Computed example of a mutant assay.
Amino acid sequence: MIVRKRPNAFLLLFLLRGGVIQRIWVQLVMIGLMSLAIVTAHHFFPDVVRGVNPAPFALIGIALSVFLSFRNTASYDRWWEGRKLWGLMIQTSNDFARQSVVLDRDGVLNPARQALLTQVIAFAAATVRVLRPGEKKNIGDTPLARLSPPEAILTEMTAQLGQLLRDRQIEPSESYALNRHVATLCAAQISCERLANTPLPFAYTLLLHRTAYLFCFMLPFGFADFLGWGTPLAVMLMAYTFFGLDALGAELEEPFGLMPNNLPIAAYARAVEINMRAAMGETDLPEPIRPDRYVLI
């Protein structure tokens, strides 16, 4: 995720970090060269390469803009839902740490509480590994741990809470409250996996991609008579808008990836670790993950 103060209007024109120009510059160059070729052919061979009425392009452009807006709104909703789910996990982890203090006696950290909070740290880290592409997913020896490491950790936490209840170290009401937090962590983690494993219907992406390319390829024929040699610049500007929105929508569609505008779930997991270690009374806490060239991962 891009973390920086908003620069002034002049610097915004030249910023590359966090934009999509790096992903679409090849398409823009191709569109510009193709537009230049069409304008040149139209200039020297007007009877062979004819211009067309630009009016229909306005209607197509409006329809394409509406479709782009719909798709990008759906992608942003996925990004924002992922952010809310990780916020819920951080909040629930803090609630668990605060309510589990009933295990301590006379201000001394109970080893059982220390084990539970350590597992919360492991749960957050395992969730990052499951959601992030390219990370090792299957960790553990049991079938559940190989299938879903975060679920295996939560199951172990529930078993420990049950043992504490049987040993009369906690009351039934306290066990119920702590188990509710475990259930909330499980629900948030499963919802994150749903987002990661269920992309937007591929037909939307395919239709939008094809329509944007065809529109930009046909646009020089409509501008050649009116803009002349300025047609390539105008077409590249239009293509930058359409291709950029398409690329940004694809980036936000996968909120847990490693692109600059994806969610910094590793930083969220580190925040959980810091909070849990502080709750255990540790003073040598790990440093929060800092942005690298304005990008927080």
Rank of each mutant, 00 (worst) to 15 (best):
F217R: 06
L245S: 08
A247G: 01
A203W: 03
W229F: 15
M236D: 01
F202P: 02
T198P: 00
E254H: 14
P201Q: 01
A183G: 03
T231S: 09
L206G: 02
A212L: 06
E193V: 02
L248H: 06
A196Q: 11
L252S: 02
C186G: 07
L237F: 11
L185S: 04
I190H: 13
A239I: 09
P201L: 01
M236R: 06
T241L: 15
F221M: 07
T184P: 02
Y213P: 01
C216N: 15
S175H: 14
V235M: 08
Y213T: 11
G222F: 04
Y176N: 12
N197G: 06
T205W: 12
T184E: 07
W229R: 14
F215C: 09
A234P: 05
T198D: 04
S191A: 15
L200D: 00
G249S: 05
A203G: 03
L200K: 03
A188I: 05
L248M: 13
G228L: 13
A177F: 12
A203D: 05
Y240C: 08
T231C: 09
L245P: 00
T198K: 03
S175L: 07
Y204F: 15
S175D: 12
P220E: 03
Y240F: 13
A234F: 14
L208P: 00
P232C: 12
L233Q: 08
I190K: 15
D225K: 12
C216D: 12
T211I: 13
E251D: 06
T231M: 07
A234Y: 11
E193W: 01
A203I: 06
P201C: 01
F202I: 15
P220L: 04
N197P: 00
L248D: 02
N197Y: 10
A224Y: 04
L252M: 09
G230C: 10
R180M: 07
S191C: 02
T205I: 11
M236V: 12
C216Q: 13
N197R: 15
A212H: 02
L206M: 14
H209G: 10
A203Y: 03
G228W: 12
M218T: 04
M218N: 04
L178G: 02
P201S: 01
H181K: 09
P201D: 02
V182A: 09
M238P: 00
S175V: 07
C192T: 01
